[in-house]
Design a binder for these strands. Structure first.
Lengths: 185, 185
DNA sequence: CCAGGTTGGAACAGCAGTGTTCCACTAAGG
DNA sequence: CCTTAGTGGAACACTGCTGTTCCAACCTGG
């Protein structure tokens, strides 16, 4: 994790970003997309894609790193340490929802879980554990189960949003409501 | 839907079942498995597989039919019309969980949603609508959202079970508990 | 026992994706 | 202006999957 992509010349950084973003979009839509498809979506030749990412695995790695970075930002914005754990958890939901397609990649396992365990998933588990100690989260439910329920509903919310079956301002209240009720003691 | 596979000679029916079951297992594990992989898992030559299912689409169709059939059985066992809707919904959860890998196929969209809409998914939506009328299910939540929450948690429960991270007798109570709390008014 | 139904293996052509090389083109910076 | 980093396209070999054909072996019931 000592890459210094940020310091590369403008053009390179821009191209790299375009490819990673297109990869996220296309992979979320179909985990088995071809590299050619991703290159097209990025508005870039397949040759160029291979110049930045020698093979599929390298591109997937980059997508993984992107995921962890965006996850970390979301944690910061939700201020997980402020107030009681359940309220913090409900603050986190809309932030996670902003991750969009990354949620799909995370959930469908396109990004290897190992990447995420190394810092992406830990804060949420810690938050739930705090809720257990405080008593703001149902102690009858395993930490893993609570984490799973939150992720599952987030993925559902994103899928609904993406399909255009409901608007964000309709979805978020229902998401928060069902998560709240499910995990409350 | 006028196939008469049941009336075929013993050997043919047995082989056919073995292939479909292996397909469910392998496709749940990896939606992009090759037909050769499925044939191996079924303990059958690839030639034989092609004899029963000319191409991939035909096999997927068969898996879809299997899904609808098993779904219908589950609905019958749960007696969806007995008692109040929320209680019936909670009865349905363990029944659905018995579907195992089929849950994964359903959820990951390996089986085209159109197949399921034609009879697989309707009863659940109808049940939730009844719950809304009765008042046993939270009216603040869309029917679609409630259905989604149930499916998402079922999938989570099955995934946890399949990974061996928890036993069925630990999972089912938590599943029922979170579904109940989430959908209760 | 033996004829018909059933099977598996080998071999084939076709296709799509991958990763590579090479070369010509462009545009931005010194 | 002219160098140079960055790019895209064409072509290539290679791999793995698909769907097909053909044939030898096999049981299994009559």
């Amino acid at each position: 994790m000592t890459e210094v992509h940020e310091t590369e010349t403008g053009a390179r950084a821009r191209t790299r970003r375009a490819i990673v973003e297109a990869a996220v979009r296309e992979l979320a839509h179909d985990a088995a997309t071809s590299l050619g498809q991703i290159a097209d979506a990025a508005g870039v030749g397949r040759t160029t894609l291979h110049r930045y990412f020698p093979d599929r695995a390298a591109l997937l790695d980059a997508v993984g790193s992107e995921t962890v970075a965006r996850l970390t930002e979301a944690h910061a914005r939700a201020r997980l340490d402020d107030g009681d754990a359940r309220t913090a958890l409900l603050r986190l939901c809309p932030e996670y929802l902003l991750l969009g397609d990354l949620l799909t990649l995370f959930f469908t396992g396109v990004v290897p879980d190992t990447v995420l365990d190394e810092g992406g998933a830990a804060p949420l588990a810690a938050l739930v554990a705090r809720g257990h100690r405080e008593g703001s989260i149902d102690r009858e439910l395993d930490v893993d189960w609570v984490v799973g329920v939150v992720w599952a509903q987030l993925y559902l919310a994103w899928a609904t949003l993406r399909e255009g079956q409901a608007a964000r301002h309709d979805i978020v209240p229902m998401l928060v409501r069902t998560v709240d009720k499910a995990v409350a003691p």
